[in-house]
Amino acid sequence: MRPSPAEIVRTLVAGRLPGLAHVAHRPGPHHVRHVTDPDGRVLLLVPVVSDLAAALRPAAHEEDVAIVLDVLDLPPAAGAPTLGRAWVSGWAAELRDDDARRAALDFAAVEPTGDLLDLGTRFRLFRFEVAEARWERAGTVRRIDPEVYAEAEPDPLHPLEAELLADLADHHGPEVTRYLRRQLGLTDGEGGDPPRVVRIDRYGLVVALGRPGARRRARLSFPAPVADHAELARLLHPMICPHAGTR
């Protein structure tokens, strides 16, 4: 098992990675603070006095503005493979009154920034429903059906991935190495450098084999997708606790 393309795009645009906004027929791109709400709609927190706010101002005969959000994955550790790049597009409109207040709660659930307290004075919230989604990886671009995108969920481990990898490497290195060798059927010393976990998602572990920078990788799948950090900790207990035994 592994994340679907729609899940990867939802994960990339969820709001944990930097984004660039490209506004139709306007100069740019613009750095933007963004998140997605539970339905996958994109929320943009925009300073009132900014080039992006000016670009998002619709013409007199328009209600919204065409926009593309561009998000590039930042691998969580040296030697980790990238998830690629996501583009999602739609028509952004400013939210007001009750719509803005409800959207602010959705924004705060992902990024609890104090700037939301200045909504309506120093900041504005814009929102767009995703009309088109694309995922690029290894030079290949794949279109994602907007309905499939909306139904997918971002990976719950992605915000913690770098921290989880560092914890496994720094505090449980020997135990993890032994576990990976058992699971991959490697004897001591076989394969050169010890296998290393370089990515974690709700479906499993990506393991690098050989010297740092080598492209040989293997995937170890979990018995079922994990729902959160607590469930992951229970699942990995045999790996990091030598007395738990193997499963």
Rank of each mutant, 00 (worst) to 15 (best):
M1I: 10
M1W: 12
P3A: 14
P3D: 14
P5T: 12
I8V: 15
V9H: 04
R10W: 04
R10I: 02
T11F: 06
L12I: 08
G15R: 05
G19C: 08
L20W: 13
L20M: 14
A21C: 05
A21H: 04
H22L: 15
H25F: 06
R26I: 02
R26D: 03
G28N: 05
P29L: 11
H30N: 00
H34I: 04
T36S: 15
P38W: 09
D39N: 11
L44Q: 05
V49R: 14
S50H: 04
D51G: 15
L52Y: 09
A53G: 04
A55S: 08
P58M: 02
P58L: 03
A59W: 08
H61C: 08
V65K: 02
V65M: 01
I67L: 14
L69C: 05
L69I: 05
D70N: 10
V71G: 12
V71P: 13
L72T: 15
L74R: 15
A78P: 07
A78Y: 08
L83S: 10
A86G: 01
A86L: 02
V88G: 05
G90L: 06
G90N: 03
W91V: 11
E94P: 04
E94G: 08
D99L: 14
R102M: 09
A108D: 11
P112W: 08
T113G: 13
D118P: 02
L119M: 11
G120M: 06
R122P: 00
F126H: 15
F126D: 08
F128N: 01
A131E: 15
A133V: 06
R134N: 03
R134V: 08
R137D: 04
R137K: 09
G139C: 06
T140L: 14
T140Q: 12
V141F: 00
R143H: 11
R143S: 13
D145T: 03
D155Y: 01
P159L: 02
P159T: 01
A162I: 01
L165N: 01
A166F: 00
D167I: 00
L168F: 00
A169V: 03
A169F: 01
D170I: 00
H172K: 00
H172C: 00
V176H: 01
T177H: 07
R178E: 14
R178A: 14
R178S: 10
Y179R: 12
L180H: 03
L180A: 05
Q183F: 01
G185M: 02
G185V: 00
T187S: 11
G189T: 02
P195Y: 00
V198M: 05
V198D: 05
I200L: 14
D201E: 09
D201R: 01
R202D: 07
L205C: 07
V207Q: 04
G210H: 07
R211P: 02
A214W: 11
R216G: 09
R217L: 07
L220H: 06
F222K: 12
F222Q: 13
A224V: 10
P225E: 11
P225T: 11
P225Q: 11
A227P: 03
D228M: 06
E231N: 04
L232C: 03
P238L: 05
M239K: 00
M239P: 03
I240S: 02
I240N: 00
C241A: 13
G245L: 09
T246L: 12
R247W: 13
R247Q: 13
